[in-house]
Amino acid sequence: MIVTKQETENVARLGSALGKKKLFPSIVELSEIGMLARGGRTSVTAKGVDLSDFDACFMDAPIELAPFVEVLLDEFAEKGVFCQAAPESYYVSSNKPFLLSSLSECGVRTPLFEVLPDASALSHSSGFKFPLVLHRYRGYQEAKRIVVEDESALKALCKSFSESDVVVLQELIESDLDRSLVVGDEVFNIRKKWSPKKRENVGRGVYHKLSNDAEETVFKACKTIGCSIALVDSSDGMVLEASPYFDVGEFSTSGKDVFSLIAGFYAEALK
């Protein structure tokens, strides 16, 4: 089955690619799924169908649904339903401080960072180099991401933050962005140019072959979040983001049929 927030063209294309591998998936919308724990047993159903009867699932759920998807994946894992993402993957990816901390402790290079439980802790922070990237989180949601040029701008900005906002200050890597899709033991990468003028990566991205070292870093990041298929953003060999959720269509510029590759991965995994 493909579990998705809503049926899109990409979901249909993935379904078709899986069909060519004789896997013929059912499309299940997340809104239809319900979990029930009763009498010492747990079940997961959608419109009366027991989802634990499926052999495999491709999880296509946005990260903001992590509190639901994490438990759903745990249920699938317990019932032996193969999925590209481990239960903890959504949780780790949805909690940016935890993601950065986990990546760095697993030996994955990341930009220098500092996490503050709220903006009032700014006065205790350890002399960051500017410019830097500020991420503000309200719960799991990233409420703001902005490049900050100097300390006075940082202080002014933080005055407007609420007490419950977690702040991540991250070294700004002024370099091209490598957006990599890992599928099993293969990596497809598109590179987005850095614009010094706009202070961001721009354009749709073009296919770019990663170096062996960079590939190894990307695989390590994917493994850290517990995924066999995942999106990894890196810049100058440092990982910025790793997520089980991605837009497959974005990789059409890589010149590869990513849908067919994912289908092939599932066919192999289910042998």
């Binding site: 997340l30 809104s31 239809e32 979990m35 010492g40 747990t42 438990v71």
Partner: peptide, 19 residues
């Protein structure tokens, strides 16, 4: 509750959904 269901302690029937 899902976690405790495995331990054999009594728990109330509980559900989770998003819709």
């Amino acid at each position: 509750i899902k976690y405790l269901a495995k331990t054999g302690v009594l728990t109330p029937a509980t559900s989770l959904s998003i819709f």
